[in-house]
Amino acid sequence: MLEIKNLHVKVGDKEILKGLNLSLAAGQVHAIMGPNGSGKSTLSYVLAGRAGYDITQGTITYNGEDLGALAPEARAAKGVFLAMQYPVEIPGVTTMMFLKSALNAQRRARGEKELDAIGVLKIVRQKAATLNVSEEMLKRALNVGFSGGEKKRLEILQMKLFEPKLAILDETDSGLDIDALKLVAEGVNSLRDPSRAMLVITHYQRLLDYIVPDRIHVLAKGKIVAEGGKELAKELEAKGYDQIIKDAA
């Protein structure tokens, strides 16, 4: 589903990703782990198409298509979803209104029929129940005054709502207490599906106790330096990034 080859990415004048290779098949959950500044967030942004993250070399192929050639909203309509580390606030726009606009924009782009407010509300309510997202939260302005946990739960709610083909979770565990973490992990696990691929980006091994990946890639200085099964997370926890990176070199 996702094939990244020799990816080089610049932000401004600085090269952040320096020849990254990654292959992710449908039905798989992979984790990207790495120290701060290794390029984890850059990878998630470049996959989602954020302006200012320029591919200077290499390719990203998504379901046979050149992902780099698509506008960010087109990628979303084709099933690319990024759960963000820092979900932004949009004052004056209710969460429900935002969900409806976004869902319908995606449906429109795919040539599907748009849903009316009641139709969207029905689906949202049903998905929201398991995530402990209240009606009251849906009426508040998007992410405005939300706690860290509420923001992350809303990200997962959107993931459930949009039913992406490729879901990227950027440090979804940051700022969560253990209860919130479990709730979020359950949400993610419920979306595991043979037709869906997920890329879980995290700094800590903790999240991977709850979302067990099929494969782990260690990212350092813009490249994948080590790969392995789920046991690699434990090894990282025990040895630390420095040692693993040294071992790999």
Binding site: G49, P72, V88, G92, V93, F98, S101, A105, Q106
Partner: peptide, 25 residues
Amino acid sequence: DDQLFYCLQRGLGQEEAVALIVNGF
């Protein structure tokens, strides 16, 4: 920029995103 990117990532077009943010404002 991050507000705009957030909207685009969720499927809204550039114009639609600006309209949404401004209407909120």
